[in-house]
């Protein structure tokens, strides 16, 4: 028993050490966001603000609030569709072997490595042709397509852990391809979905380049564009910028906290036993 307690203490010590390291930059972020403009900058970065100023937050919130809703309209469908399609892709690529499935997977992987910057021109032309340029709908489509390689990859490797016998057993029981996905694989996919949703939500939420190129009307732009636009081209009010970053990160953080709970349960274990 004493040994177990000692182990726990070591775990706590290690966790705390890592935590301090992780929080160092966050401290700078927080301290700066509460400063009046004339205390902002490198020389005074470690100092806590002499008096808490909410100017930064007020200014940032005022400019960001209009774009918050756009981001939700963008992120929620884009995340769920790309996660769902990625999960089915992953299932097909890992459990149903067909001719060319390896080649297909290789192509998808290469797609992941195409830099954002080099697809800007073709992307714009494509969106114009299908009449979605300038709309959030167009942006959703872009993110679904661009997100597929990663969601597919994560699910494929996640399902690789799942014993193939499980699926085969279902097939013997007479379940079709999709039925065995729904009945066997989908219920145990939750940790996989958590990882994929965290990834997609964060990336689409924080993505700037596509957003700013596809939508030019400020009333249609997602929050990241407004966040970057808090900075002037010459003078940057870092207190406003960092307050804005904290406000912008809050929804993502809530998603983490909500989804993180699922990590704390051994979901797969239960279903395998059953």
């Amino acid at each position: 028993m004493a040994k177990k307690k000692g182990k726990k203490i070591i775990v706590y010590i290690l966790l705390t050490v890592f935590l301090v390291g992780f929080l160092l930059p966050i401290y700078v972020l927080l301290a700066t966001s509460f400063k009046p403009f004339d205390e902002v900058g490198k020389p005074l970065m470690w100092n806590w603000p002499s008096s808490l100023s909410f100017d930064g937050f007020a200014k940032a919130f005022d400019k960001l609030k209009g774009n918050l809703i756009n981001s939700f309209i963008l992120v929620i469908p884009a995340t769920f569709v790309s996660a769902m399609v990625g999960s089915i892709n992953g299932y097909v690529l890992s459990k149903l072997k067909f001719r060319g499935s390896n080649a297909l997977f290789a192509i998808i992987l290469f797609g992941m490595f195409i830099p954002y910057q080099s697809i800007l021109f073709p992307m714009i032309t494509f969106l114009q042709n299908i009449g979605l340029y300038g709309s959030i709908g167009g942006l959703i489509l872009v993110h679904i397509i661009y997100g597929l390689p990663i969601t597919t990859l994560i699910f494929r490797n996640y399902y690789a852990e799942v014993p193939t016998e499980l699926i085969e057993a279902a097939n013997i029981d007479g379940a079709g391809i999709f039925k065995s996905y729904w009945k066997v694989l989908f219920p145990i996919s939750l940790p996989g979905f958590v990882v994929v949703i965290i990834w997609q939500f964060t990336n689409i939420w924080n993505e700037f380049l596509f957003a700013v190129t596809v939508t030019s009307d400020p009333t249609k732009q997602p929050i990241t564009v407004a966040l970057v636009n808090l900075a002037g081209s010459q003078v940057v009010e870092w207190n406003v910028q960092m307050a804005g970053a904290i406000i912008t990160a809050l929804p993502t953080l809530l998603v983490y906290i909500f989804l993180g709970k699922y990590f704390l349960r051994g979901l797969l274990a239960g279903s395998v036993k059953g």
Binding site: L120, V212, S216, D217, P218, V225, V228, N229, L230, A231, G232, S233, Q234
Partner: peptide, 15 residues
Amino acid sequence: INATVAGGAGTNAKA
């Protein structure tokens, strides 16, 4: 329609 794009001396905007 006030379409602005920020970023150091207009780098993002120019792209």
